[in-house]
Design a protein around this nucleic acid. Sequence first.
DNA 1: AGGTCTTGCTAACACACGTTAGCTTCTTAT
DNA 2: ATAAGAAGCTAACGTGTGTTAGCAAGACCT
Lengths: 197, 197
Amino acid sequence: MARIKTDKNISRKDVIVTKAAILFREKGFKAASMRDLAESVGVEAASLYNHIKSKTELLHELCFSVANRFMHQIDAIEAEQISSIEKVEKLLKFHINEMIHHYEEVYVSDREWKHLADPYLSNFQNQRRIYRKRFAAIIETGIRNKEIKKIDAPTAVLIMLHAISGIESWHRSTQKISATELEENMITILVGGLVHK
Amino acid sequence: MARIKTDKNISRKDVIVTKAAILFREKGFKAASMRDLAESVGVEAASLYNHIKSKTELLHELCFSVANRFMHQIDAIEAEQISSIEKVEKLLKFHINEMIHHYEEVYVSDREWKHLADPYLSNFQNQRRIYRKRFAAIIETGIRNKEIKKIDAPTAVLIMLHAISGIESWHRSTQKISATELEENMITILVGGLVHK
DNA sequence: AGGTCTTGCTAACACACGTTAGCTTCTTAT
DNA sequence: ATAAGAAGCTAACGTGTGTTAGCAAGACCT
């Protein structure tokens, strides 16, 4: 009888959630079946239900664990006593590193949240909207301080966030530059596009 | 008996493809059912098959019509006798306007191409890869001419293309700035991030 | 007006999906 | 060693899917 392998401190549920992230990223939430997931975990489909409540629960788990990390990070950065540009840069670096090191989760949370069911859906959308508002507020402060060009802050946020989701292509590409180089290049271009003069 | 309405020069198939784009964008290719599509067209599901071969054909149609437009555009721009920065700017403007005015199609082509079946899938991926190489080549020329900062060109391309796909958020947002303002802001930030000094 | 092609409908198919029920087997603690 | 709980299995369910077959109604041309 196949058994899900676990190390200490990693529950069988965690194993399933992690595998689910990989699968949802590859195929999309709807196209990934519980039988696919079962196979990648090494078990029959029905057995998964000893550990999880439903397929959608897996999506909740992924989306909100990511959302929470980002919320905590922006809390911390807002509180720091540094210039707006530095705040933006710190935030971008966090996004970039999340996208590099927790690729599957972050990607899924970014692209597949549409398939959440209410009330999770509205909740997630709210958090997202608030996050973007707070990001935009940082930029607006920077504009008032003349650290940042006179631009539309929400548009800038939208560019930053989506540009970073492009790291997906980096992951897929065969001849990757190093992670550090990637980070440096992205910061150069994105922050370079903001700074006044 | 319900009949699909058409104006002159618009085939019933075109009507279906257009509605499919809207639906695929809203729900994703897999989650959008032929019965959903039928309803939005105002007809029974089976009737669709008098005009199309399969659900996947709709996706082919959408993906390749977009891909072709972009290919023709980069052909034209490469041939022009203008600076690299101007080429990048023209290409970006084209992307932005496509994303603004042919939102549904472009979005679907961008996010749902994974669900194409071979040989269409490999074909599409190839075109995409080639397109990005050509875009990167323009940037590399600009770097050699010292018009553009010393950066990794493929990374720059990835940022540009994904940043533009962020126009999705603009479409969804309630208090939109105007399309022209959006274009100007995006160009300012993105081109501003490239130019040397 | 009649005949033909087009476009629609209803009914049904085969299949894949998420999930449940009920039973067996393995692990763990007394 | 044994009882209890955890984790696996097979079988099956109801439902939704893309698609086909066969027939009816509408449009179009002479």
